[in-house]
């Protein structure tokens, strides 16, 4: 290898490593703060304690917010997986004009300002007389999660061998059953990937949610920003640290199941 190549390679590795450290920094800060004794966010903390974890159960509104976020995330992801798969099949297999436009349309919410989509949806729902915050949140979060599913499933589907479905049908299965028994298992890595990203996107969504929540239905990010504005203390760091731990477990599980590299096919 020439000297130029060695230098370039070295620079790439260094930048890669630096980016990793840069990305993990907020996580380390969060975990460190969560174990701090004081309620002021000083790093390094003067002393260590687990009191914020102990306070988690009793913190006002925290567990309901967490529960709501998880519910909405699971439901919206599940709905998106179904809707997204059907739409992806149509785009990959269909021969109708405007296929590409349709695909772009379904993925576009990713690139739209969430705030704007949230406002529009709120006004629309209000205009139609629908004031139920839960339903509104669910609708909004399906809009958020559908693009992730569509992108990933569409990419996987374009590599899928559709003659497998033909084979299943000649063996006696109806088209819907063939989809369920043959295609869904083959697509499961795509589902795991998009499901994970969709779930995280929903759990983390602020811009759409802020307009659709009400006093009794607050998702986790809304609740956390409120804590920060009213009386910030490391409890939120404790919550986040728990979520981090959970995600690490999910990622390790995913690595075992399908290999983490699949996640990059988002």
């Amino acid at each position: 290898m020439t000297r130029t190549q060695i230098l370039t390679r070295g620079a790439v590795w260094i930048i890669g490593f630096a980016v990793c450290v840069y990305l993990m920094l907020p996580l380390f800060v969060t975990v460190a703060v969560s174990f701090s004794e004081s309620s002021v966010f000083n790093l390094p903390p003067p002393s260590w304690s687990t009191r914020w974890y102990e306070a988690l159960a009793t913190k006002r509104g925290l567990l309901p917010a967490l529960g709501l976020s998880v519910q909405i995330a699971l439901l919206s992801t599940a709905i998106s997986l179904v809707l997204g798969t059907l739409a992806a099949i149509a785009v990959v297999r269909g021969r109708f004009p405007g296929r590409d436009a349709l695909s772009t349309f379904v993925v576009s919410p990713l690139m739209m300002p969430g705030l704007v989509v949230g406002i529009a949806l709120l006004q629309f729902l209000r205009g139609m007389g629908m004031r139920d915050a839960y339903t509104g949140l669910l609708i909004g979060h399906v809009i958020v999660t559908l693009p992730f599913v569509m992108r990933t499933v569409q990419a996987s589907l374009s590599l899928f061998d559709f003659t497998l479905l033909d084979a299943a049908r000649t063996l006696g299965l109806t088209y819907p059953r063939a989809l369920l028994k043959v295609m869904v298992p083959v697509l499961s890595p795509a589902y795991i990937t998009s499901g994970l990203f969709a779930f995280l996107a929903s759990m983390d969504n602020y811009p759409i949610s802020i307009f659709l929540t009400d006093a009794r239905n607050k998702t986790l990010p809304i609740q956390m920003l409120e804590y920060l504005e009213v009386r910030p203390d490391p409890t939120i760091a404790a919550v986040s640290s728990c979520l981090i731990l959970l995600t690490i477990l999910v990622l390790l599980f995913t690595e075992r199941l399908i290999g983490l590299r699949r996640l990059t096919d988002f």
Binding site: L23, M24, P26, L27, T30, F197, L200, A201, M203, D204, Y206, L220, P221, M224, L225, L228, I236, A237, V239, S240, L243, I244, L246, T247, I248, L251
Partner: peptide
């Protein structure tokens, strides 16, 4: 992993 922390935090 950073996607799991949540943008607020």
């Amino acid at each position: 992993l950073p996607l799991s922390v949540g943008i607020v935090v």
